[in-house]
Simulated scan of single mutants.
Amino acid sequence: MTDPRSHPACEQEARERVRAAEDAWNLHDVDAVVMAHRIDCQWRAGSEFLWGREQIRGFLDRKWKREIDFRVIQQLWAFTRDRLAVRLAWEFRTDGGAWFRGYGDESWEYDAAGLVSRRFSSCSEHLIAEHERLLRWPVGARGFGGASLEELGL
Rank of each mutant, 00 (worst) to 15 (best):
R53K: 06
G140T: 04
R44A: 08
P138F: 07
R81Q: 12
L152Q: 01
L154Y: 03
S122D: 11
D23R: 14
R57C: 06
S148V: 00
R142C: 02
N26H: 03
L149C: 04
F49G: 05
A21S: 10
R19M: 05
S121M: 09
D69T: 03
I56E: 04
Q75D: 13
L50A: 01
E16Q: 12
H131R: 15
R83W: 07
S117W: 08
I73L: 08
F92K: 05
A36W: 06
V18A: 01
D82R: 11
I68N: 09
D3M: 04
L84E: 02
A9R: 10
H131C: 12
R133Y: 00
Y103L: 15
L50G: 03
A129P: 09
G58F: 11
L76R: 00
F70P: 02
A113H: 12
P8E: 04
A36K: 06
H37Q: 08
G96A: 14
R66I: 13
T94H: 11
R119C: 15
L152A: 04
A147Q: 12
E130W: 06
L60E: 01
A36G: 08
G104I: 06
R5L: 13
A129F: 05
H37N: 09
E13G: 02
L127R: 08
L84F: 05
F144S: 10
V30H: 09
V34D: 10
I68V: 12
S107P: 04
E67R: 09
E13L: 12
G96L: 11
A21H: 09
D82A: 05
C123I: 10
A78H: 07
C10T: 12
R44Q: 14
E11T: 06
T94L: 11
W77C: 07
L127A: 14
G143M: 00
R87I: 09
A147D: 12
V18G: 00
R5V: 04
S121P: 04
R5K: 13
D61L: 15
R15P: 00
A14S: 04
L88G: 11
L27Q: 14
V33F: 03
Y103P: 05
S47D: 15
G102N: 02
G140E: 10
V34C: 10
I39N: 15
A78T: 07
K63Q: 15
F49P: 01
D69W: 01
H131K: 14
I56C: 06
A24D: 00
E54L: 07
I56G: 06
K65I: 13
F59Y: 13
C10D: 15
S117Q: 10
T2G: 12
Q42F: 12
A24N: 01
F70Q: 05
A85G: 11
Y110M: 10
S124K: 08
R118P: 03
P4W: 05
R101T: 07
A141Q: 10
W137V: 02
Y103E: 13
Q12T: 13
I56L: 11
R142H: 01
A89K: 01
